[in-house]
């Protein structure tokens, strides 16, 4: 039962969603529409689970005085402040939750992502050594796109922005299309394996 029941639920819900796409009539339509909303509700419970797990990890770190435990209260307080202000004051504009988001979460998120500029640049410096002609091609393509994005590119040669547009619309589109079509085939086959219970690693363990 521990295995049959979850696999049956996967099969039934998966088949309803597939049928919902091809048969837009009752009762499949009603079942499919409701299931899409149920899916979002249960998936949002996974966010709760993640938050609870985060709190559990940090309380445990404090309790056992593990490495860097002194920073764990910061995470707990940060979570609690956002959670409580969101619950009490709501999420509308010009409320405390909005203030915290706009002045703390959003700046930290952009700073974190902008930090990646430094790491990506240093990684590129090491990885993109023109060791063979294909690596040189990759390096040249990246360099042209980067130059084409900024005014100095056009100042060096007015055709660089055009070359950037061509690279993005022709070879990049071709490559991305090949990747997307390949990935879509992978998604279809993996989804079928999951719906029919062949792929069951998501249930954990090997039973």
């Amino acid at each position: 039962m521990r295995l049959i029941l979850p696999l049956s639920i996967t099969f039934i819900t998966g088949m309803i969603m597939v049928l919902h796409f091809f048969v837009p009539h009752q009762p499949i339509k009603l079942l499919g529409d409701n299931l899409q909303e149920w899916y979002m509700i249960v998936a949002s419970a996974a966010i709760f689970l993640g938050a609870l797990n985060l709190m559990h990890v940090h309380f445990r770190k404090i309790k056992l005085k593990l490495k860097n435990w002194k920073y764990s209260p910061v995470t707990i307080i940060g979570f609690s402040v956002m959670f409580v202000t969101g619950l009490i004051y709501g999420v509308t504009e010009a409320r405390p939750f909005d203030f915290l988001f706009m002045n703390m979460v959003a700046p930290m998120a952009s700073t974190m992502f902008s930090l990646l500029a430094f790491f990506v640049a240093s990684a590129a410096f090491r990885a993109f050594r023109a060791s063979n002609w294909r690596a040189t091609l990759l390096l040249t393509s990246a360099f042209i796109v980067m130059l084409g994005q900024v005014p100095i590119g056009a100042m060096i040669w007015d055709k660089i922005p055009l070359a950037k547009v061509w690279l993005m619309t022709i070879p990049n589109t071709a490559g991305q299309r090949a990747v997307m079509i390949g990935a879509a085939m992978g998604v279809v086959s993996t989804s079928l394996r999951m719906i029919f219970g062949i792929e069951r690693s998501y249930l954990g363990g090997t039973d």
Binding site: L5, T10, M17, F22, A184, V187
Partner: peptide, 29 residues
């Protein structure tokens, strides 16, 4: 939690299978 996972995985696989095929495969072709 396996029941809930089964439901999410099943519904997600069903939606993504046809969705990805339509938007990422057929539309790109």
């Amino acid at each position: 939690s396996r029941m809930a996972l089964g439901m999410i995985i099943g519904a997600g696989a069903g939606v993504n299978m046809v969705g990805f095929f339509q938007t990422n495969a057929m539309a790109q072709v």
